[in-house]
Design a protein around this nucleic acid. Sequence first.
DNA 1: CTGAAAGCGCTTACAG
DNA 2: CTGAAAGCGCTTACAG
Lengths: 339, 339
Amino acid sequence: MAERSMRALSSVTMADVARLAGVSPMSVSNCYKQPDKVSDQTRTRIMRAAAQLGYVPNLVAGNLASGRSKLVGAVVPSLRNSSFAGMIQGMEDFLETQGYQLLLAVADTPERELRALQAFLGRRLDGIILTGVEHGHESIQLLRRSGTPVVETWSLNGPFIDMGVGFSLYDAAFEMTELLISRGYRCIGFAGFHPPANPRLRERQLGFQAALKRAGLRDDLLYFGPEALGFAAGRLALEHLLEEEPELRALFCVTDVLAAGAIFECARRRWPVPERFAVAGYGDYDIAAEIEPGLTTVRTPGQDIGAAAARMIVESVQSERPTERVVDVGYEIVVRDTV
Amino acid sequence: MAERSMRALSSVTMADVARLAGVSPMSVSNCYKQPDKVSDQTRTRIMRAAAQLGYVPNLVAGNLASGRSKLVGAVVPSLRNSSFAGMIQGMEDFLETQGYQLLLAVADTPERELRALQAFLGRRLDGIILTGVEHGHESIQLLRRSGTPVVETWSLNGPFIDMGVGFSLYDAAFEMTELLISRGYRCIGFAGFHPPANPRLRERQLGFQAALKRAGLRDDLLYFGPEALGFAAGRLALEHLLEEEPELRALFCVTDVLAAGAIFECARRRWPVPERFAVAGYGDYDIAAEIEPGLTTVRTPGQDIGAAAARMIVESVQSERPTERVVDVGYEIVVRDTV
DNA sequence: CTGAAAGCGCTTACAG
DNA sequence: CTGAAAGCGCTTACAG
């Protein structure tokens, strides 16, 4: 009985508040949306009535009437990867300041992504943020037709469905490789994941090779391990490439996990890093700063990407034509002790 | 111009589909919600018309009319912690199978949590999942009054606002400590974080101490390091406690990150683990399986917690009285090579 | 199996 | 500054 009457509290309506305050529902609406369009006296009476009744404005009704949801949807392939966790954190932090909220979908297959997008569109979100630039044909069609603002993230390689934000994975790999070369390393290997087709990993490989080619160095010391292996793949890369080329003195890894695995292996061999062997990472995960010696790596600004993507959505909702359709958030080479 | 007409596609309405199919809007609604209540012929005509127009049912209107949102909200303190990332993954995986979606808020303060909850309630979500059992007074009041199903997670220590799911942090620590004792370790330290007040960490300490007390062993070798230090705090714990008690032979750590730091320090000292020194972790993070030697730790089932919490919400929406209000998902001692 | 009527709780656009 | 009218696109409950 008591339960029942409490439940009712959440169904207090704008009309109820208006009645108690002795004003029209319009004034209640204005009081919440544009407080300065309401006289002080009216506002006070309305707020008092609202507090007394425990009124919580029904945003669903508001959405339907206004066509605005203040809701942004995001699709990520996984949460286990701290890059994506960082991106989500960046989106959330920004959206919260704007009074928006985040609808999150985890989709590791094109089918799951499509299903998430269908639900998103049904909810008439104000915008959608996707991970990467590879999407199913049907998903792309659906998004284009919907007219919903869409931001694709991480890669700067278009064409984009609508907008894009990221940084040059190629440039970052190129620059890190040049750092290795400038420190005197001549025989440098590359540790990636199998299959090498993943476009976000592929760009790094091309940047790596371009830097070596330009310096006239050998660029074919490549190893692709199984991603599921985690740290162990770093050890395997080291072993395989050393077998192929005993003069190998440095390894560029596509993720910090690989790099940490390679460093663990150097420790086992009692090889001082970087004197005997240098290791460069990618991602600047937590472990990069914690491991001994500290890992030299590329900071990939997941949080900045998330924040920028959210900002682009909000801007494109508020003004018809947003200024920037493609944003480069850059990257940073974090020099520690392994190169 | 083309843009404008495409935008219109997303505002195709149920009435439009009904008109083209030559049926009433009611039949279109039934066709989507209860397909078997519609004749084959009618269904075919409706689906064809819907496809032709690119109709996407407006779930916002549906929510308003039906009072159901198929939306669950979750508040987590952070995404950097892989326990919470796992919990979210568990929620998402389950919710997706039920056609529900997840509204995510990151809130690291009671104020931010309250704001998130206000927005959640305004959207008339079907249920809300909270992290932990410590919440602001105002948040608790708001949730109680709303009548919305609420699940609190991780700890099994009530009283709960509504429902709870987790495992006994105390028991897990107790059992791990007993394992250390059974392996012959007599002088065992505890590595925690400062401040020791955090209730989720505190329960582990009490379990640790109870096991030692029961075995008649010393239970006051405690160290609390700064959480921000990450791995380094594990090294500090080792150093401080050894100074206090040179006979120290084992360390129980409240997270795997601390444990990994302690293992790194043992490696520096050339101490074989566990022969010279044993280390027990908590969390079973990725690094536990990857590090050398493999870390003996407690698997804390974040994903199970998320899935169970989501299930409890969905069940309590569908039936008036759900069977279970408090669910213990248990834990698991993962024995590897460091104890 | 099918449909006409009323309503969900707001906002928009306009008049006073 | 304030408010009466119409409408957002569905679903509910009911009659045929």
